[in-house]
Each structure stands twice: as C-alpha cells, then as structure tokens.
C-alpha cells in the first residue's frame, strides 16, 4: 500500500495523518510487530519501521536506547523487512526509516526489490540527501516505492524546491534544529518551514509531514492545523522503555497514546498522558 493513497484519503477527510515510528527489533522482533499492530489498531495511519543502526546521528537518547537494544538482541536487516511485511499485512503503508549505510551494504536495488516484495511503501532517509541519492532514486522508480527526504529550518529555498522535487509520498519537515526526542512545546520554526515548503509543493501538491518533538494529542492537534501528517517517534518508544519486560503494560500505554494522538490529528486530543 502506498503512502500517497493514504495521505490523499486523510486529506479528503479534512484531517492530518498520524505517522508512528518504532524500531524493528525493539523490544524484540516479535515484540515490535505486536506493538506496531496495536498502534495501527488504535489509529496510526502510516507506520515508520526503524532499521536499527550502530551510529544514529539524528537520534536523541530515547531512540538510541531502543535501537541499541534491538542491535544487542541480534536484529538484522532481514528482520526489519519481516516487520515491514507484518505491518503491511494490517493494511496500512509501512515506510522504512533508515540511515544510509545498511541499505548500501544490502545493495540499493536489492533492498528496494525486497522491500517492495515485503509490501513496504518506501524509505525515509535521514542522512541521505537527494544530491547523493542517484542510485536510490532510480531503484525507487523501478520498484514503485515512495521516497521521503527531509527539509530543515536551515534549508535554503533552493534546496527545499530541489528536495520536494525528489520526494514521493510526502516530504518530511524537521520542525527543529535538533535530534529526535520529546519536547515540551512545539517548535515555532515548524509553521514557517511548512509554509516555505508549501511554496515549493503548491497547495494541492506533495503532502508535508512534520516531525521531531510531538508528544501528545494537543501538540498533534497544533501541528495538524498546518501539516498534512504528524510524525511521532520517541513518544512511542519512551513508554516501552519505561515498561521493559512487561509487554502488555507497554502495549496498553502505547495504545492510550495512539488514541490521544489520533484524536489530535482530528483536531482534538489532550495535553498529556
């Protein structure tokens, strides 16, 4: 299933989509499949499956701890594809969020082929800019995959236009100059960046997703007022880290959070758990 179709649907419904992230293999491979299934059941529209990597420079301590756990547990690239397959079977689109080296090591075209075969929708590539992405752009075309690149408050208008032109599915606007992690307040940079990005996409064009820092339904509602998709990562990981060893409690907490966020992207939602 493609992200394009899902985001066209949420747009037609007059709301933002909820995009939820979890690393494959956290807390275990089977555990990540179970948690993601609960997230989908509680209202996540698009799933980002994180591919655990040894050197995650864009991630703050919460996601670092989760991906370290996944790697220490022996999670391999093939396991990430297995998680994608399980998520895709639930009927929502599954993107893989991955640093570039594991894909290059697997083989760019081979990865695209296997991702497509697993029912995956495409890739979000936090350390791959379109300037370096020739192989991936071609492979994504060959296998009809979405490719989500990032724009940032520090991006020039020229780079935003170039990045938007390279994206398919949506463009990921990083709301703050910083790494992943929950933040108390939403960023004042975010609406400005989204407006600058829309200047490049056109109003009916490529959807704009906003990520970095969204923790609760109220923040999600704030972001949903100006973005097409609200991306949440660390906030899903944190309650699982707090409840390690008790999967049922972790899933219950994640379910509560998802419901709150799902209400948020529909314009409601609370300010905390």
């Amino acid at each position: 299933m493609s992200v394009r179709a899902t985001l066209a649907g949420t747009r037609a419904d007059g709301r933002a989509a909820l995009v939820g992230y979890l690393p494959a293999g956290f807390p275990t491979v089977e555990g990540s499949i179970a948690v993601l299934a609960a997230m989908v059941a509680a209202g996540v529209d698009v799933v980002e499956v994180g591919l655990p990597y040894s050197d995650p420079v864009m991630d703050g301590p919460t996601i670092q701890r989760a991906t370290e756990t996944a790697l220490a547990g022996g999670t391999r690239t093939a396991d990430t594809l297995r998680v994608v397959e399980a998520v895709a079977a639930t009927g929502v689109p599954a993107l893989v969020m991955t640093y570039w080296n594991p894909v290059e090591r697997y083989g760019v075209d081979r990865f695209a082929r296997d991702l497509s075969a697993a029912g995956g929708a495409g890739l979000i590539t936090p350390d791959l800019i379109p300037d370096e992405a020739g192989d991936w752009m071609a492979a994504a075309d060959r296998h009809d995959l979405d490719r989500v690149f990032l724009v940032a408050p520090s991006s020039t208008q020229e780079r935003i236009a170039m990045t938007v032109a390279a994206c398919r599915g949506f463009v990921y606007a990083t709301a703050v100059m910083g790494v992943t992690g929950a933040r108390e307040a939403t960023s004042t940079d975010a609406p400005v960046l989204v407006a600058r990005t829309r200047a490049a996409t056109g109003t009916a064009g490529l959807p704009v997703g906003v990520g970095l820092g969204v923790t609760n339904g109220a923040q999600a509602a704030e972001v949903a007022a100006f973005a097409d998709a609200v991306i949440v990562g660390s906030a899903f990981v944190a309650p699982l880290l707090e409840r390690r060893g008790d999967q049922a409690a972790g899933i219950a907490a994640v379910t509560r959070l998802t419901r709150d966020l799902a209400a948020g992207v529909r314009g409601a939602g609370s300010a905390g758990r």
């Binding site: 420079v57 864009m58 350390d127 800019i129 370096e132 940032a152 520090s154």
Partner: peptide, 12 residues
Amino acid sequence: GGRFMPEALIGP
C-alpha cells in the same frame, strides 16, 4: 567523500 548528513547540517 560527499555529504551523507542530515539536511539540517547541509546549510551549515
């Protein structure tokens, strides 16, 4: 070589 970096650092 090249630049395999988050977009946020490309401007800097």
